[in-house]
Design a protein around this nucleic acid. Sequence first.
DNA 1: TTGTAGGCGTTATCAA
DNA 2: TTGATAACGCCTACAA
Lengths: 334, 334
Amino acid sequence: MVTIKDIAREVGVSPSTVSRALSNSPLISQATKERVHTVAKQLGYERNELARALVKGSSEAIGLVVPDITNPFFADIARGVGEVAHAFGYGVILCNTAESLERGLNYIRLLRRKRVDGLIITNAIRNDPVAKQLVGSKTPFILVSQLWEGIETPYVTGDDHYGARQAVEHLIALGHKRIGFIGGPAAVQSSNDRMQTYRNVLQKHGITPQEEWIRYADFTQRAGREAGRRMLSLTVRPTAIFAANDVIALGVLEAAEDLGLSVPKDLSIVGYDDISYASLPRIQLTTVAQPAFEMGKIATDWLISTISGQGRDFLHRVLKPHLVVRCTTSKPSP
Amino acid sequence: MVTIKDIAREVGVSPSTVSRALSNSPLISQATKERVHTVAKQLGYERNELARALVKGSSEAIGLVVPDITNPFFADIARGVGEVAHAFGYGVILCNTAESLERGLNYIRLLRRKRVDGLIITNAIRNDPVAKQLVGSKTPFILVSQLWEGIETPYVTGDDHYGARQAVEHLIALGHKRIGFIGGPAAVQSSNDRMQTYRNVLQKHGITPQEEWIRYADFTQRAGREAGRRMLSLTVRPTAIFAANDVIALGVLEAAEDLGLSVPKDLSIVGYDDISYASLPRIQLTTVAQPAFEMGKIATDWLISTISGQGRDFLHRVLKPHLVVRCTTSKPSP
DNA sequence: TTGTAGGCGTTATCAA
DNA sequence: TTGATAACGCCTACAA
C-alpha cells in the first residue's frame, strides 16, 4: 500500500506537505498541490482512513443494528439511513442480529470498539450493562422504532398505541368480536404496546378475548404461519387476527390458506408496517402504515448533526401511522 | 475513552504488559492478568480496533456492496455473508448503491480506504479504472451473482443460461408462442445472460419475438409494473412474460391486475430468484430458484480463508438454479 | 510556503 | 515474566 511518505519521496517534499496538499490546505502552493495530486494518482494512493480516524478521533462511520435485514421494514430503514449518511460522507456498518438479543449486545460492543461516531439501533435489548454503558458514554445513539424500558434515550418511533387502536377499532367496527393477536418476541416494546392497546380497546368495547387468542411468535413469516395455524385450529377460533407486523400477517395468511379458510370471508387479517409486499394485487393486506424509510432518514439526520456538535437536544420523535384498509378485512360471516 | 495506558497506570504495570494480558498472552502471569482484567472491566475499557488494525495491518472487516438491500434476494445474500463473517469474528460494512454504478465505484473506493480485509461485490460495474485497480491490488474480493465483462475475477453465481432455459422452455412446453422478456439494467450481466438465452431458446424453437416484447427496466417492482403495463397494452401482446427477477415479476403481476388481465389465464409470468414473497399463497409465482443465502455464505467462506492466507485458488463457483412451477403459468387461452 | 517533531492507541521486537 | 522502544500512517502545532 502506498503512503504519503512514498508520495513525498517521489515528489521531493516532506510528508506533511503531502498531507496538506491532499487535504487541499490553503497553505500549499498550487504548483506543489498539482504535483502531489498527479503523483498520488499515478501511484494509486488511497488514504488510510484507519490512521486518519485514529488521529482525528472520528471515523466518519455510523453503526446500524437491525434484528432482521430480510424484513422489508428494516431494509427500508437501512436504506433511509444509508441515503442520509452517504450524503454527509459517512459510512454505515450494518449488523444483523438475527433476532438474538445477545448478538445485538455483541454488535453494539463491536461497533463501539471500531469507534463508530454514532449508533442507530432498531433492536430490543435486555436491561443490560452494555446498554447502561452505552447510555453513560459519549457515543451518541438513537433508537428507531424501538424503546428501551426504563432507560431514557433519543428515539424515532411510530405511535404504536394509536396505530393499534386504528387496527382494532376497524375490526370492531366491522362487527368482529372474536379477535386474536399475534405478537413478536416478548422483549420487543413496540409489540407489547400494540398488544396492550389491543387489550384495552377490546375491553373498552366490553370484549374479553380468550387467552388462546393471544400468542407470541418471532417476527418471521414462518413463525406467523405456525402461530396462525395453531390459533385457527382451535375449536372456537377468532374471526379476525391482528398481527404485530406484516411479516407475521403474511404468515397468518398462509396458515389460513393451509387450513382452507378464505380471507376475508372466514378470517380478517390486519398487519402492521405496510411493507411493499403488503400492497401486491393478490395480497392487498389491510395494515397500519409506518414510514420506515423516513424514520431512517430522520434518525440519521439527528445523529449526524449531534456528532458534528450541532447538538440539538434529545430527539423524541413520534410519527403517527395510519390505517390502510385493503382487502383482508371484512364483516365476519354470520 | 479509556486506553491501555490508563489501565497500566492504575494497575502499576507497563502498557505492553496490559496489552499482552488483554490478548491473553501466555507470557503473562495469571495474577497480573486477573488484575488487568478487573481494572479493565471496572474502567469500562473497550479496545480501539482502529489502532489495532493500523498496527496489525488487518481490520477484521469485510465490505459488502449491494445494489438494492430492499430486494430480498440481496437481503438474503447479506444475511449469509453476515452469518459466516460473524462466526469468524469479522465485521461487515454494508453499502447500498441504490442501483447507481457511480455510487458502487465510490463505495468500493471508500471500503478500500477503510482498509477492509476483503470485498464482496454484487453490483454491476462499468469497465472502469477503479475495477482495474481493484483487480490489480492485493485486496481479495469476490463477485456474487455477478460477472464483470472482460475481467477475470473470482465469483459465486447461478447458472443463468440454465435457469433461463428452464423458464422459457417451460413456457414453450405449455404452448406459448408470444413470449416477452423484461430485463434489468443493461449493465447487469446476469440479466443479459438471461435475455440472451431467452432469445436463443425461442430461436431454437423457431419463434421470433417482436422487439416490443423485449424491454429493460430497473430491478424494482415499480419499473416492472410500468414496463409490464406498456407491454401488455400493445395491440398484439404476449401471452407470457419472463421477468429477469422476482421483483420485476411482481410488478408485472400488478400491471396485469391494473389492466384487468387474469393470471395465468390471460398471462403467464415467470420470475427469477424465488424470493420468500414469491411463495405466498395468493402469489404463487412460478420462478427460477437461486440459493441466495447459500451464495452469501460460500463467498464469505472463500473470502475469509483467502484473507487468512489459506489461499485456495480463484473460486469460480456456478450453482445450478431450478425451476419452481407454481400458479402464475398455464397454457395460453386459445 | 514548507519542514520538524510529537502524538493518536495498539502491537511487536529486543532487552532485562 | 515484564519493560522500553519503535513502529503502523496520518495530522497538526510550532518553527523556519
